[in-house]
Amino acid sequence: MKRLLFSVLAFGLLLTSAQAQTAVQPEQAYAENIQIGLSTDRITITTDFSGADLTIFGALNDVDPQFARQNRYDVVVVLEGPARPVVVRRKDRVLGMWINTQSETFVNVPISYSVATTRPLQDIAQPATYQRLSLGADYMYLQPRDRDALPITIEEFTAALRERKETTGLYSERIGGVQFLSPNLFRATLELAPNVPLGTHRARAFLFKQGLFVRETSAYLAIQKSGLEQSIYRAAHDYSLLYGIFAVALAIVTGWLGRLIFSRD
C-alpha cells in the first residue's frame, strides 16, 4: 500500500515536472526565423552555358545557441523551376517493336528541381513531414490529370518521371550542399543543369529543428536567355510565321553563298 502510494506520488511528481516543462518552454522558446538572399534576381544564359552552380546565402535569426552548437538545425534549400504539364509514356513490346502504349499526364510538374541539404533528407525529418510540405523530389506531390487512375499506376509513372528527370540532370540533390559558416549563417550551393528551363524559378529554404519543420522562406529568380538567344526564342514563338520565312531565307542565302565561295566550275 505504502509502495503504491509512493509510486502514485512519483507519478504525480513526474506529471508536475512535465507540466512545469511545458509551462516554462514559452519563456525559453526561440522564434527561429530563416532568411535567404540572392545576389541577383536574374540569371542570363549565354550560348556557351554548360551548367553552373548557384550559391544562395541565408541566415537564421533567434536560434537556440545550444542547438546550433550541436548542429541540430537543418536547412534544405530548393530551386524550383516553372511548372508545366508533363506526359509520361511507357513503351511496351507490340509485334516485336517497342511502342509507346500507356501514358499518364501530370498537371504541375516543376521542369527542374534542385535540392541542397545539410544532411541526407531521410536523416533530417520523417517522410510524412516532407510529404506534407511537398518537399524533395521523392516526396513532392504531382497531381495526375486522370483522377480515376489506379494509385499503383500513378506511383509507377511518378517514379518514372523522377527517374527521367534525374538522369537528364534536371532534378538533382546535393547532400551537404548547405553549409553553416557560423551558427547563424549558411551557404547553399545548388546545381543549374545545362538544360535548365527558362522562366521564373523559386528558391525556397526550409528550416528544421530536430526533425521538426519550423519555418520556410522563398525568393524568386528569373532565368533568361542572353540577348540573341532570347530574341530567337521569342521570335520563334511570337512571330512564328515570320521566323519560319527568315529560317528559309537564311538557308537560301547560305546555299547560294556556299555556291559562290566554293564553285569552281
Partner: peptide
C-alpha cells in the same frame, strides 16, 4: 532501335 529493348522504357513529353 525499334526492335531492341530501349534502355529506358519511359519517356517524358510536353502535353500535346
Amino acid at each position: 532501335d525499334l526492335f531492341v529493348q530501349p534502355a529506358d522504357i519511359y519517356s517524358l513529353g510536353p502535353l500535346g
